[in-house]
Design a binder for these strands. Structure first.
Length: 216
DNA sequence: GACCAGGCACATC
DNA sequence: GATGTGCATGGT
């Protein structure tokens, strides 16, 4: 497939999704810190469970960097229990908070004043934050122009023969970022629309769906 | 009861 | 470098 065709395909799919589903108004969450917490909690978990965990944190009035940083690990784990993998996710939240307080005095504005590539490297060095979580944080909490690749992206676009399902994260990201304009709002909406499509039409065990809006 | 959901780190070969 | 496994809840 030529670069030109690829670009047309990516833009065409976006247009179809947008026409079909409309703006998704992402990230579902209030403010950058809640976005970051949600990004960590949603690892391999559906959003409904994450939402319950976040509600617990809100009810306990601990959903701020300072409060979560000083909350004991076992209490944090108990509050985020509905999100699954709660022990490991509690540690991951703590490792991010340690990073935030050690390097930026707990201030997100300071952290988000760094240039994209530098900050991405730093966030990726935090234990428990891999490429997808890092990019979700950068795009949805920091408003950096980074395309987020997730399991749905790989599944949907491999079925459209744009790349293999086991494509490397960075390579998949390059395909989007190299062929679309670097635009925060576009990347925000595109990923949100992919998740919307994935949830409704692109199940793991159902390779074809007759009513999929982007089916040829 | 099986399968799935907006990953990641670590062990083993 | 590739592949397998543990981590866990709640919905369908």
């Amino acid at each position: 497939m030529s670069d030109n065709q690829l670009r047309k395909n990516l833009e065409g799919i976006y247009d179809k999704l947008y026409r079909c589903f409309g703006p998704q108004d992402w990230w579902p969450g209030d403010g950058p810190f809640e976005v970051i917490v949600g990004a960590i909690l949603t690892q391999n978990t559906n959003w409904q469970n994450v939402s319950r965990a976040i509600d617990n944190l809100k009810r306990a009035k601990v959903l701020t960097p300072q409060k979560l940083h000083s909350l004991p690990l076992n209490k944090l784990a108990r509050l985020i229990r509905p999100s699954g993998y709660f022990n490991i996710k509690a540690k991951r939240l703590k490792s991010f908070l340690n990073f935030l307080f050690k390097n930026y005095q707990g201030k997100l504005e300071k952290m988000f004043s760094l240039p994209l590539d530098e900050l991405r490297q730093e966030i990726l060095s935090v234990k428990g934050i891999g490429p997808e979580t890092a990019d979700s944080i950068l795009l949805y909490a920091g408003n950096y122009p980074v395309f987020v690749v997730d399991a749905y992206t790989k599944r949907i676009f491999s079925r459209k023969k744009l790349f293999c399902e086991d494509v490397d994260y960075h390579r998949a990201q390059e395909i989007f970022m190299g062929n679309l304009k670097k635009d925060v709002q576009l990347y925000n909406e595109y990923h949100a629309l992919i998740v919307r499509l994935g949830k409704d039409f692109c199940k793991k065990t159902k390779p074809k769906c007759a009513i999929c809006p982007i089916r040829k």
